[in-house]
């Protein structure tokens, strides 16, 4: 059992949880994720690690309630326990000093982007951070991300905060203005797809961190498979980061929706049971 030591609600649907786990706190690296399962009937879901505190032996995750499992997690409070938590999983981010790096994060994807962006900055890169969301309330970790970025920009679809427009517009502005050596993006698959299309046009190396459906998360089931460069890759052990220009995002998007109907059934049952 793993104790939730702190909970902060960041917006209507997004919460930050700090959970005790000494071994993960000590050994996790940027880009890695954990698998969480809540109780006997729970499913195993992957969540990327946003931060950790080695001294306190805790990790931070950020969760957005979108279905049964994420809602269960969102509803936890300080003092509650999580039955199963395993990690860190996946290949850590390959951090290098290559010049100018754009870190582009959408929605809750900003959470796992935080340690990655920080690592690129610490490696000596010029870091341009662009955060995007549908609307102002959905922007998370603004202050944290701003703290170490050389340049910082916010984009919202509805113009309620920062600049109005999609994240790709913000990225393109930067690319047109100065030489960018690498883009790292994290967020909804559809956002990463369009970032990849954009940067391919400009031939800028781009890394996307994929968040697919997983069951075991340890290289056994193949639920997370995705086509990269024409080959089948497994996000849990080969990834989660891949060359965005080679990822078949359309295929990935379809696979992400594989259980849409079942997810709706489960969620409406969960919400009914809550009442």
């Amino acid at each position: 059992m793993y104790k939730v030591v702190e909970k902060r609600v960041l917006s209507e649907n997004v919460a930050k949880l700090i959970i005790e786990n000494k071994t993960i706190a000590k050994n996790r690296k940027p880009g890695q994720f954990v698998i969480i399962k809540m109780g006997e009937t729970g499913e195993r879901i992957p969540l990327t690690i946003a931060d950790s505190d080695t001294e306190k032996g805790t990790i931070t995750i950020i969760v957005q309630k979108v279905g049964t499992s994420s809602h269960k997690l969102f509803n936890l409070n300080a003092g509650d326990h999580i039955s199963d938590l395993v990690g860190p999983l996946g290949q850590p981010t390959k951090v290098e000093n290559i010049g100018t790096v754009i870190a582009a994060g959408g929605g809750v994807g900003v959470a796992p982007l935080y340690p990655i962006a920080k690592a690129f900055k610490e490696a000596g890169n010029k870091l341009i951070t662009i955060l995007a969301a549908r609307t102002k309330d959905l922007i998370i970790l603004e202050n944290e991300m701003k703290e170490f970025a050389d340049e910082f920009m916010i984009m919202t679809d509805d113009g309620s905060y920062g600049k109005k427009g999609l994240i790709t517009a913000g990225i393109e502005d930067v690319i047109k203005r100065e030489k960018v050596d690498m883009v790292i993006c994290l967020g909804p698959a559809i956002m990463m797809k369009f970032i990849a299309l954009l940067t391919k046009k400009y031939n800028i190396h781009t890394i996307a961190s994929l968040n697919t459906i997983m069951v075991d998360g340890t290289g056994m089931c193949g639920a997370c498979r995705v086509t990269v460069g024409g080959k089948t890759k497994f996000v849990c052990v080969d990834g989660p980061e891949f060359n965005a220009h080679e990822v078949d995002f359309d295929g990935m998007l379809k696979r992400l929706n594989a259980y849409k109907k079942e997810e709706e059934t489960s969620y409406s049952k969960y919400l009914k049971d809550l009442k």
Binding site: G42, E43, E262
Partner: peptide
Amino acid sequence: KFPEYDTPII
């Protein structure tokens, strides 16, 4: 045992 259990199967 879905939806008693959360993991779905088609």
